[in-house]
Every structure is written in C-alpha cells, then in structure tokens.
C-alpha cells in the first residue's frame, strides 16, 4: 500500500497554567491514498488534536509526520499552507463559510487562492455545486442556507482544489440525523471518487461507514481495525 500520510510517534502536549496537558501520546498511523478512516472516542480523547496534526494546522511536540513522503512537521508556514491549500481539504463542524460570500463564492475562495483563472473557477465551482446537489443555491449566502446545505457547500469548498485527503471534524455535529446522513453519504461518495477521507466523529453510524475506525482514549489509539 502506497502511503499518503504517515504519522510516527506523534505527541502533542499543551502547556497550561495548571501544568502540561498531554493531548496526544505516541500516536502512529498511516493513511493510504484511497483510505476511509474514522476516528472515534470520547470527548477530550485527542481526536481533533490528531486531525489537526494530520492536516498540518498544528505542530507535534514530538514525532514525525510525512505527507506524500515529505516530512512536514518542520516546514515553514508558507509551505504548510501550500500543502493545506492544494493537497488537503478541511470540513469543520461549524462550516465556517464566509457570511459575506455566496455559496459559489465560498467555493471559489480556495480556487482563487490557488491561482485559478476566473473561467477555471467558474467551471470547477459549477461542477462542485452540481456534485453536492446545490446548483440551485449557488447565489445564496450562508445565512440563506440550511445547516445541511451549508455543510455541503463546505464539503464542496474542501474539494475545490482536488485534494488527495479530506479531513472532516465532526461534520455532522451540528446537524439532525437525517441531514447528517446526507453528509455522510456525500463523504462516502467523495471517498468512492478517489479521495482519502479521515473523519472525526462521535456518531457510531457515521464511523461505521468508514473502511477503518480508530478508537482513541486519553490521547492514545486504543483500537484500530480495518
């Protein structure tokens, strides 16, 4: 199996006034290009911390992380940002769509940042809106969208630059069950179309759709099964 992302003995310790908090302890894992991984566990077990390290938005206290064979933990901000922009997509629990932009414009943000031309942006945005079933809502602002629609726009935005890895942090956390099912189905489809997906979730049903699930407790991987 070719490795897309490899974490070796990742540790993340936060310095707090009351003393150090060990959020992650010696976690190692590998993610293949077509992987579909769910990370589950109780609140505060280190799921999101692990996701942030995998997504290059945080730096491990110790350990190594490589993305497409390249060590990333010590890269400067500009290069890590470039990897996040072009190779990794992020979906957040609270969507974080920009309220002053329409759905189409929100999807265009990472495209524009990556230097896509106006025509390229238009084409790709239309494709993605169609992909998430929101072509008819293209010119609506986030405040005019339902939670499920906003999250679908967020997924489309995450896919804008054709990332190799999609990271989703509790993507159904703010949604009702039926809407959450739609998002889970969308993630399934993203995976089926060739993008590796890592999803952090409390929801066993969402977790059950992944090919692999990692159970975490107290900053450690408790159980990993294919």
């Amino acid at each position: 199996m070719t490795t897309l992302l490899a974490a070796n003995q990742l540790t993340r310790t936060f310095t707090m006034p009351a003393g150090p908090v060990h959020a992650l302890r010696n976690v190692s894992l590998e993610i293949a290009p077509a992987d579909y991984l769910a990370i589950r566990g109780p609140s505060g077990c280190g799921k999101s911390t692990l996701l942030h390290l995998l997504g290059c938005v945080d730096t491990p206290t110790s350990g190594e992380l490589s993305f497409e064979g390249r060590a990333v933990e010590a890269l400067p901000d500009a290069e890590r940002s470039e990897i996040r922009l072009r190779r990794i997509g992020f979906v957040f629990q609270r969507f974080f769509l920009l309220p002053m932009l329409t759905a189409r414009e929100n999807i265009e943000v990472p495209l524009a940042e990556a230097g896509a031309t106006r025509a390229e942006r238009r084409t790709r945005t239309s494709e993605l809106l169609d992909y998430v079933g929101l072509s008819h809502r293209a010119d609506h602002r986030p405040s005019q969208l339902s939670g499920g629609e906003a999250q679908r726009v967020a997924v489309a935005r995450a896919l804008a630059n054709r990332p190799r890895l999609l990271l989703a942090d509790e993507p159904t956390g703010e949604l009702d069950r039926a809407t959450g099912e739609q998002i889970a189905a969308l993630l399934d489809r993203v995976h089926a179309d060739g993008t590796a997906v890592v999803v952090v979730t409390h929801d066993p049903e969402i977790g059950g759709r992944a090919a692999r699930t990692l159970m975490m407790r107290d900053g450690r991987i408790e159980d990993g099964r294919a």
Binding site: G55, V57, D77, A78, S81, E82, I83, R84, L85, R86, I88, F90, F92, R94, F96, L98, V109, P110, E113, A114, R157, A158, N161
Partner: peptide, 16 residues
C-alpha cells in the same frame, strides 16, 4: 478569529 483560523486551515498563509 474562528473564521480566520478556518481560512488558515483551508490554506491561507500567515502572510496572506
């Protein structure tokens, strides 16, 4: 702050 953090996660650099 949260919106800015999200933009950073999406690939916006510090300089940007």
């Amino acid at each position: 702050l949260a919106e800015i953090a999200a933009l950073r996660a999406l690939g916006f650099s510090q300089a940007r």
